[in-house]
């Protein structure tokens, strides 16, 4: 074993890695946004026991949580194509990650919404506000604040799980690393490099969300 670790190699790979990082960030950002939207919609359907749709949302969550993400990705990329609804690798990836994160966010946000004091709903209703107003103006602003830590967890998982997309050829960070490894066999360098990059973006994401949480909670705390 006379493996020679080479920092210059990493340096040389930087432009490729940056290209991969860019795709990872775009895919993750889109998926995180969509997964929160899916979570808000499905959690609301659940909490308000909307006939039929509430059960559909429950089934969707159950399905996503009980099957491997890689299978979901393949299903969307290859399965939909064979049905004639083929999507590019990029959009298959965004769709798969959004649906995956959306299922977890449905549960996260459902938790947040059920933590909202029942009395607030009665107060809102007795002012003449309708359920949709209550949801938009009272329950979501309060419930979403409550579940920010859980949403952050899921967002971090979405970001990390974007590396699965290398399996369908999306040129994100892990794909780039695998690609270089296949050419140059610099395994240690490449996987250390992308490991550190994932670590840094997860740290940045967590810090940003914590800041946001403190900022949003401020009015509650000034007792």
């Amino acid at each position: 074993m006379d493996y020679q670790f080479s920092f210059p190699y990493i340096w040389g790979a930087t432009p490729d890695l940056l290209d991969g990082l860019w795709i990872t960030l775009i895919v993750s950002l889109l998926s995180i946004i969509f997964s929160v939207i899916i979570g808000v919609v499905c959690a609301s359907l659940r909490v308000f026991h909307v006939p039929v749709l509430s059960s559909v949302a429950a089934g969707y969550v159950h399905f996503i949580r009980s099957t491997p993400l890689l299978v979901q990705i393949f299903f969307i990329f290859y399965g939909l194509a064979s049905l004639g609804f083929g999507l590019s690798g990029f959009w298959s990836g965004v769709l798969a990650l959004s649906l995956w994160g959306g299922a977890y966010n449905t549960e996260n946000i459902r938790g947040g919404l059920s933590a909202v004091d029942k009395g607030l709903k009665e107060a809102a209703y007795s002012l003449g506000l309708r359920p949709i107003h209550y949801l938009r103006l009272v329950a979501l602003p309060i419930g979403l604040r409550v579940c920010i830590p859980a949403l952050l967890n899921t967002a971090v998982s979405v970001l990390k799980n974007s590396s699965y997309l290398q399996a369908i050829g999306v040129a994100e960070l892990t794909f780039v690393a695998m690609d270089r490894v296949a050419m140059d066999f610099r395994t240690l360098e490449m996987f250390l490099a992308i490991g550190l990059i994932y670590l840094v973006i997860v740290l940045l994401l967590s810090t940003a969300v914590r800041r946001l949480e403190t900022f949003l909670k401020a009015p509650f705390n000034t007792a």
Binding site: G119, L120, E122, A123, Y125, P141
Partner: peptide
């Protein structure tokens, strides 16, 4: 519509905390 004409005050105030 009826509710908008009828105010209600609760034991626990139920102000919107946010």
């Amino acid at each position: 519509k009826v509710r908008a004409e009828v105010g209600m005050v609760f034991q626990h105030f139920n102000l919107f905390p946010h």
